[in-house]
Nucleic acid binder design. Structure first.
Lengths: 165, 165
DNA sequence: TATTGTTATACTCTATAACTATA
DNA sequence: TATAGTTATAGAGTATAACAATA
């Protein structure tokens, strides 16, 4: 019982075992670019999320980028102080905040993103053309999937040896 | 000045912005399987790293899996207590430890990996066949690259606005 | 009372420094 | 003295709980 699952071809490494370290390395590669723009990783993610139209509510924004709502408060404070975003109470419900990118914020975001894109393109350019296209296609597809689709159903709850953490 | 960088086709999301969350989700998908085997993420990584032949030295092992040497001590303690690995001083230099997988350890590793592989295959099976192959090919290629290759040269040291973190 | 944002607190993960034993 | 492993400590990063303002 070694080559169990039939159709699947070869003993490849686990997906996560390849993807997680790769993601870490890509983040490390981005860091110098971000620092050159005075941005933290979270600040950059916030700038990306504040696309073209304003966002209503910090909680929503936090959730959209996979952060805790308390996590991004300092980030927003800083971005606001530096004039990259505007944060004002929504006149229709003064509890919520309306978040918008300032022109300067847009400029910084685009500049940072261009730098990052440039590095990534250099990396991708080492790949065969068709592989590159397929890779990006799959990546977009998997990124677009809702989490539950990937995490999937709890097949058997907790029937097997739940010993340690 | 919108479609600046010429040859590059479309405005794709940043690689890291797709890969990092995907990695997180894949890890979350693995967790139930690992817990069913009483394994933490690090414990599983250790079992994977202790492939067929013994490993000499915990520091080397730690470095190989991208962890601090102090990070894995508790993990090894636990695995040893449960009889999944053996840890004994190297007779030729009693400071270093010889780490080997026990038969039970191998069994657990293979069972866990099979579970993980199964979930991943289910995910990959949703992709077009050629895309899937290309995706895995690229993933393996990028994973195999040395970090420096991806992080690359510090293009311009620190010439631009190094304001905040 | 419920909700948004904020602050204060605690918890988890990880790395650094100090120690023991071998060499 | 130098190195492998261990322990104790401190530092990020993150989440939880309590609070103030608005609805």
């Amino acid at each position: 019982m070694a080559e169990s699952t039939a159709a699947t071809d070869d003993p490849r490494p686990d997906l996560a075992a390849m993807i997680v370290p790769l993601g870490r390395t890509l983040m490390a590669a981005e860091l110098p670019v971000l620092r050159a723009h005075g941005l933290s990783m979270w600040a950059y993610v916030v700038l990306l999320a504040l696309g073209e139209e304003p966002v209503r509510g910090q909680s929503g924004l936090a959730q959209a980028i996979g952060a805790d709502k308390t996590r991004i408060i300092g980030v927003l404070d800083d971005l606001q102080e530096r004039g990259l975003i505007e944060r004002r109470p929504d006149p229709r419900d003064r509890r919520a905040h309306l978040l918008t990118l300032t022109p300067e914020g847009r400029r910084v975001r685009e500049s940072a993103q261009a730098g990052i894109r440039h590095r990534e393109d250099r990396l991708l350019s080492q790949l065969p053309l068709e592989d590159r296209a397929a890779f990006l296609r799959v990546l977009r597809a998997l990124s677009a999937l809702p989490e539950e689709e990937i995490i999937g159903p709890e097949r058997h709850g907790s029937s097997e040896a739940p010993d340690r953490t």
